[in-house]
Amino acid sequence: MQKKVIFRGVALPVALLLPQLVITGIFFFWPAGQAIWSSFLREDAFGLSREFVWFENFADILTDPNYLAVAWNTAIFSAAVAVLAMGVALFLAVQADKAIRGATAYKTLLIWPYAVAPAVAAVLWLFLFHPQIGLFGRALNAAGIAWDYKINGGQAMTLVIIAAAWKQVSYNFIFFLAGLQSIPRNVLEAAAIDGARPTRRFWTIVFPLISPTTFFLLVVNLVYAFFDTFGIIHALTQGGPGLATTTLIYRVYVDGVQNLNFGSSAAQSVILMALVIAMTAVQFRFIERKVHY
């Protein structure tokens, strides 16, 4: 797209573009290039020399049972966060769409968790589910359920999923509510007159009409669960116990920062980059096709 009437000149627009291009070049393209380049290198044990090893780093990662376990964790975690956060949000949005009076007030009361940092959300939930000092943690133990997310991997995973989903519901709620409110009332009234009950109206009319929103949110939620939940995991479980809550992004951090295994960390970064690009591409394709037609 281009305007018909435009200004002349080359120096000025280039100067206007320069700040962004310089920052993008230095902090985006250069490191991304570095990541790709070092994913083909391997350092010797003393960090003295680097050797070009082709795809060995990738081969090592993809055959490492720990990495596959982490990939599986990530799949479980992301799917659970997306389903939970979207399900709860859709339910609340449908209710808010019905409740004509006070809808704005409920909206205000439901959107603020968006502003809470993931790491802070983790702290809030830790305080509730701490086995010794948390209200729920103690209640669970008193009820005879041995609750300690620092020892039990399944419990640790449950807790990070809850904290991550809690924060994301408000985002989904805003988009679902906007989607629901854009459905023409007369379509729903026509269905009601034809005798369709509310549940049937929801699944045959409302849900198909908001499927583009649902699909968009699915991708956003998966990207959120992949990347933005680092703070939750770091603050709550540090990826543990064992590898129980280590996700792909957490593992990049552990290998790059704690184990100083740059080749492997870079190769993992490249895999993640490919993953994000694939997800974005899929999203663009589907949005163009309009899911509900």
Binding site: A32, A35, F227, Y253, V276
Partner: peptide, 13 residues
């Protein structure tokens, strides 16, 4: 590409 994906090389820069 969010910064988290390329975090280590960006840190090196």
């Amino acid at each position: 590409l969010p910064v988290e994906v390329r975090i280590i090389p960006t840190f090196e820069v």
